[in-house]
Simulated assay, not measured.
Amino acid sequence: MTHINVLDPSASPLDYYGYELRRYREAAGLTQKQLGGIIFCTGSLVGQIETARKLPTAEFSERADVALGTDGLLSRLLDLVLRSQLPAWFRQIAELEARATEIYAFQAQLVHGLLQTEAYARAVLGVMDQTDLDRRAAARLARQRILDKEEPPVLWAVFGEGVLHQEVGGPEAMRGQLLNLLSYLDNPRVNVQVLPFTAGAHAGLMGSFDIFRFESDPAIVYSEDYETGHPTANPVEARARLLRYDHLQAAALSLQDSAELIRQVMEERYGEQRAVA
């Protein structure tokens, strides 16, 4: 007889997801192999997700919800599962991103996590630590689901021009990353500006930061170092950082000119431009 792992659904969101998946599958009278056949995956994958050894994806969750008649339960659990895979110190920030109505981000060295491609994210996360890279990259990319909500936040992202030239993950990864930034040009809720080298000394020289604004709660400012993050709702700091951001936006190129610079760097450094979807 096949040994079945006994899951404690209270152990973690991933364990709870696996417990519910198994409960619904067994209630439907399906084996793991049979469910896999219905949702176009292997029975082994179903088993790994049921035993909390592998992360589910949005596609898996949506198909399993339909096949098992869960009324969308697994898809609703997915955000909680993926958020739980983030570093403990960052989970509060992911919650702030999910609740914010407006996000203002300044990044001097990297593309912001909400706009990273998978290849770029894996290169960033794997610099000093290759362990569990699949899970960590999936958790980072899952944060981007907030941009697909029915009412997503308005995201303003200002990048230093050096971000376009810093070759993270190799030429192919950079080409894909810059194409991804260009794909937002006609999206009024995701706005990308580049702070050019010619701006000289600017209001962001002290480092990268984010500002989260909410419907009724005070604004929160967030910055981080190598090991942890530092959120604060201090109104004096929030006002000071908002003023800095105003100056950064004023010094940055317009949305259209930023796109032109991104396209130029992509063509000159990372190969021919491909059509933007």
Rank of each mutant, 00 (worst) to 15 (best):
V66H: 10
E95T: 13
I49E: 02
L80I: 10
L110E: 02
V111C: 10
R140P: 01
F60I: 07
A100W: 11
F90S: 05
L133P: 00
R145E: 02
G72N: 09
A157N: 05
F106G: 02
A52Y: 07
Q92R: 11
A100Y: 11
S61M: 13
S84A: 14
L73S: 03
Q85I: 07
D129K: 15
V81K: 06
E62A: 10
E151M: 12
A139D: 01
Q92Y: 10
Q116R: 12
I49M: 12
Q109C: 08
E150S: 06
R91H: 05
A67D: 08
F159I: 00
E97Q: 14
L147G: 05
D148W: 08
L82F: 03
E102N: 04
L155E: 01
L141R: 01
T51L: 07
Q107A: 09
A121E: 03
R76T: 00
L115W: 11
V111D: 04
L110Y: 15
F90W: 15
T57Y: 09
D65Y: 12
L141K: 04
A119T: 13
I146V: 09
Q109G: 10
Q116I: 14
D148H: 10
P153A: 14
A139Q: 00
L80A: 12
T101V: 10
R145H: 06
A139R: 00
K149A: 12
R91G: 05
G160T: 04
Y104R: 08
F90K: 13
S84M: 13
L80H: 15
A121M: 13
A157K: 07
L78A: 03
L141S: 03
T101A: 11
R63F: 09
K54L: 04
R143W: 00
G72R: 10
L114M: 11
P152F: 15
E97A: 12
T101L: 06
I103M: 10
K54D: 03
F106T: 02
T51E: 07
R135Q: 08
R63Q: 11
G69A: 09
R53H: 09
G113A: 08
A100D: 09
I49V: 12
A119C: 10
K54T: 07
A123D: 01
A121I: 08
L55N: 13
Q144Y: 10
Q144G: 05
Q109L: 14
R53M: 02
L115P: 01
A137K: 06
L114S: 04
I146A: 02
A67N: 04
R136F: 01
E102V: 13
D79M: 06
T57Q: 09
D65K: 14
E151A: 08
L78F: 06
A67W: 13
K54R: 15
L86W: 11
A139P: 00
R136Y: 02
Q107K: 08
R135Y: 06
I103H: 05
Q116M: 12
G69P: 03
R140E: 02
L55C: 09
L141T: 03
L68V: 03
E59C: 01
F90M: 07
A119M: 15
A119G: 09
A108K: 11
E62D: 10
Q116G: 06
R122W: 08
A52T: 07
S84V: 06
S61W: 05
T117V: 08
Q144I: 12
I103T: 02
I103F: 04
D71H: 11
T117S: 08
L115T: 06
V163Q: 02
T131D: 14
Q130H: 12
E97P: 02
F90A: 07
F159A: 04
A52I: 14
T101S: 15
